[in-house]
């Protein structure tokens, strides 16, 4: 097991270097840089821009910029944001935390809703409820997330007009007066705000999960050992929960690692529309302004998180499924 872990961690290095170099390279191909936007400002002289370009190190060759970035990375330094004039980690990390709250909650939703629904469908396949549920799951899949969020915001504004209150806040991450709340109330407040966008994020992935879960349970229920269990007179409840479900859930857990990338990306545009101060709004700003080190830093950190997520998924699988051994 530990040998496997070490090997995975060693593999992580070239992947990480590849991803960051790719990002660095691709970002620098685009014409212009962070300072180009100042050029049309009548108040700023061209000499000033040249001087700042030198100060930011943007006049150096690409490879050199990357090597210096790597060198600084060894010190835990991801560079300085041009926009914020602060270390990248300081700018990016709070945003990643916010995104993770949203992603975490939506994963929770996904499993809490998706697994029971899939099981329910598997137990009553090809019936009306099965079709109705499938249709609603598809419904969420087929609407672009960013548009669905706007629809919900509109409906909630109308709701507020009609009744004077809303069950969930319309956009944002914290309420006014958040700072004065007790710590546990702060958490409740954030979660309360996260429910709506997390729900929108979930709708896109729900149909996939319920379909897999339904198929899995159906397949497991057709296996010999289930027939044996039934034949020896076990209660249907025991057969279902103790024998069937355990085995059916395995591939789904294995997929957790693979789910993270989709969810971080999926939370993306929803974050913008729902005004969630996550990482996507920052990335869009940074890309627009060509804030190089913020871009590379975000990609470096999120790819690191993804790789770690994948490894965790593998480990989880090994814990759940005794048949799997990593050597």
């Amino acid at each position: 097991m530990s040998a496997y872990l070490v090997r995975r961690l060693i593999h992580l290095v070239p992947t990480f270097l590849g991803a960051t170099f790719l990002a660095f390279f691709v970002l620098q191909i685009a014409p212009g840089d962070f300072l180009t936007q100042w050029a049309l400002d009548p108040k700023i002289r061209p000499e000033t821009i040249e001087r700042m370009r030198h100060n930011f190190g943007l006049d150096r060759p690409l490879l050199l910029q990357y090597l210096i970035w790597l060198k600084n990375l060894l010190h835990g330094d991801l560079g300085v944001s041009f926009m914020y004039q602060r270390p990248v980690l300081e700018v990016v990390w709070p945003r990643i935390e916010n995104s993770l709250i949203l992603v975490g909650l939506s994963i929770l939703f996904l499993y809490l809703i998706g697994i029971p629904i899939g099981i329910y469908q598997a137990l009553r396949p090809y019936t009306l409820p099965d079709y109705v549920i499938s249709f609603f799951a598809y419904f969420g899949l087929a609407i672009p997330n960013f548009f669905f969020m706007l629809i919900l915001i509109f409906l909630f504004v109308k709701f507020k007009f009609a009744f004077g209150w809303t069950p969930f806040p319309i956009g944002g991450m914290t309420s006014q007066g958040f700072e004065q709340l007790a710590p546990w109330r702060q958490w409740v407040d954030i979660l309360w705000h996260a429910i709506l966008p997390a729900f929108v994020v979930v709708t896109a992935d729900l149909s996939g999960l319920t379909r897999v879960m339904r198929a899995q349970v159906m397949e497991v229920l057709g296996q010999d050992y289930i027939r044996t269990a039934r034949a020896k007179g076990l209660a249907e409840r025991v057969v279902l929960y103790k024998h069937a479900l355990r085995n059916a859930v395995i591939p789904i857990l294995a997929n957790i690692g693979g789910l993270l990338p989709g969810l971080i990306g999926g939370a993306g545009l929803v974050e913008v529309v729902a005004n969630w101060p996550g990482i996507t709004p920052l990335l869009l700003d940074a890309l627009l302004q060509q804030d190089l080190y913020v871009n590379v830093g975000i990609i470096a950190l999120s790819s690191l998180l993804l790789i770690v997520g994948n490894i965790l998924g593998d480990l989880l699988l090994a814990v759940v499924d005794p048949r799997i051994r990593y050597g």
Binding site: F154, K160, I170, G172, V273, A274, N275, P277, P281
Partner: peptide, 20 residues
């Protein structure tokens, strides 16, 4: 004096319409 940050103008409009 409070300044809220809205990346999307529709979110700002929603906040104004609802009195936030």
């Amino acid at each position: 004096y409070q300044v809220n940050i809205y990346k999307d103008i529709n979110a700002a409009l929603a906040a104004f319409l609802t009195g936030e």
